[in-house]
Every structure is written in structure tokens, then in C-alpha cells.
Simulated assay, not measured.
Amino acid sequence: MRDVLFIPFYDGIELVVAADGSAAIGEKEKDVVHAPYDVVSYFAARVAFMEVLSVGAKPHAVVLQNFVHDEAWETLCNGIRRTCQELHIDIPVIGSSETNFPTLQSAVGITVVGTVQTERKRVGITPKDAKFAVIGEPLVGDEVLKRKERMLSLSLFQALLRQTYVYEIVPVGSKGIYYELQQLLQDNGLSSFSCSCSLPLFASSGPATSVLISYDPHMEEEIKKMVKDLFFSIELRL
């Protein structure tokens, strides 16, 4: 199953909920990866938004859980707003901060809530003759900041969403390409005996620095023109 929760709402409309979190990343002394808090929230929001948008949903609100300290709230919100600006989305942010107890490491959770028409969900719509590829490279931790040119940008992500010949888009998370591929195949009643890709199949893709796509084989060259050297084909034996 996708990392998205679908809840029947009314008249063919479903609520869509996706979340992401980070821990030990921030400005505290004991954090494993040191980064400004607006950067931390930007990447956490990026994941949650990508999950919601990739299934065809429209985001309506962001929920922020701030376990850093109360003073970090506005900075964290700035990171979320940056994500919204890049996606050309304007929605409210609500949430809460831990104010009772100090924490030794940073922790942030972000949830995005949206809606989608059931008939327009981009889930389980990949035909048997589709091909598969990864766009962007799996990066995690310091790699995300040091090699950001190898990461799928949000503008490119949105460009892929607009293409009718791209059937499904799945943000790749910490479990890696192979895991997301198996979930995508399962959602479409498909299975493979083997698969190969020039990228590491089991490496974490951190804050969705790459996505898995299924697409019309006849349009492969168009996709390559769009994403350039961020295209990595997946060869399957179905």
C-alpha cells in the first residue's frame, strides 16, 4: 500500500492524509545531522506534499508537530511556506509545540491533509505494458545538502504530474526503490521475477529525493528530454 491514507468522505470524495517526520536532524548539540530548522521542515513538508499530490489529491491544510522548542515554531513554518511557494500552494498551517520538557535532539512531524475524487485517484492505473523508471537519485542525511543537484526538484515533480503518459508517481522513501516498486506492482496486480537498475535498489531516498514512475513506453524519449540525466530505467521480468 502507498504511504497515504484514504478515508471516504462524501459523494465520491475521499480525504487523503500523508505524513513525514525527522529526528536527530537540526540545530541541537546531540543531533546527528546539523541543519537549520527551516531546512528540516522544508524537506519533511516536501515528502508529505509529494505523497498527497502524487495520488491526484488537492492539499488543504498542514499540521506541524514541533518537538524542538517553542522558539523554533516560526522558523519551521518558514520552511513549510517555502515548500508551498515552490508548489504554488497556499494553505494554512496549524499544530503544536512541546513546551513542557526540553529535548536533547530535534524532532519534527508534518502531516498534509487533502481531498481527491475517487474516480481520479492515481493509484492502481498502471497498464501491463507500462515501463518503469526512477527519476532522481536516492540521497539521505548530509548527501541531501551536498548533492542536491541530483535530487528531483519540486518543479520537475509537478511537471511529471502534468503528463498523461506518466501513469503513476511514487515518492521513494527510506525503504528504497525495490520496496516502492513491489508496492506499485502489487497495487496493479503485477509481479516480477527480477528487476535491475543502475541505482542502489535498497538505499534510502531520505526526503523523497527520487520518485518511481510507471509510464507509456512510447513516450520514454519525451520523459528523458524532460528529466535529462536524472532518468534511471528499471528493467523488469514480469
Rank of each mutant, 00 (worst) to 15 (best):
K128C: 10
V166R: 05
K146R: 14
D187C: 10
I7N: 06
Q183I: 09
F232I: 06
N66M: 04
L184H: 04
I234R: 01
L53I: 05
S233F: 01
I94W: 07
D11Y: 05
E168M: 03
I135T: 06
C195F: 09
K58W: 08
Y167L: 10
M219Y: 14
E71V: 12
L76E: 03
A107E: 14
A24W: 08
A24I: 08
G109K: 10
R120D: 13
E137S: 03
Q65N: 10
S205M: 09
Q186L: 13
E137C: 05
R81Y: 15
S196M: 11
I25E: 08
L161F: 01
V52I: 13
F132Y: 13
E137F: 04
T209V: 04
V112K: 00
G136K: 01
I223N: 04
T75W: 05
A61V: 14
L104V: 10
T115R: 12
I169P: 01
A57S: 13
Q105L: 10
V16L: 00
D187W: 05
W73F: 09
K146W: 07
R81D: 11
L185N: 02
D3R: 03
S106A: 09
V62N: 00
V227H: 05
S196K: 10
L212C: 02
K128Q: 14
L145I: 12
F202V: 08
Y165V: 06
K28W: 00
K58A: 13
A24C: 11
D3G: 04
V93F: 01
G95T: 04
P138I: 05
P200R: 02
T115S: 12
L230C: 07
D216E: 15
E119G: 11
L154F: 07
P207S: 06
L181V: 01
Y10A: 09
K28H: 09
H34W: 14
L185G: 04
P138H: 05
S191Y: 02
V4Y: 02
I135L: 06
S174F: 07
V227R: 10
L230F: 03
I13W: 10
R82L: 13
Q85R: 15
V144L: 10
F49V: 03
A159K: 15
G79F: 04
H34D: 09
K121H: 08
V123K: 09
L156H: 12
R81M: 14
S204F: 06
L87Q: 10
V4R: 01
C197P: 07
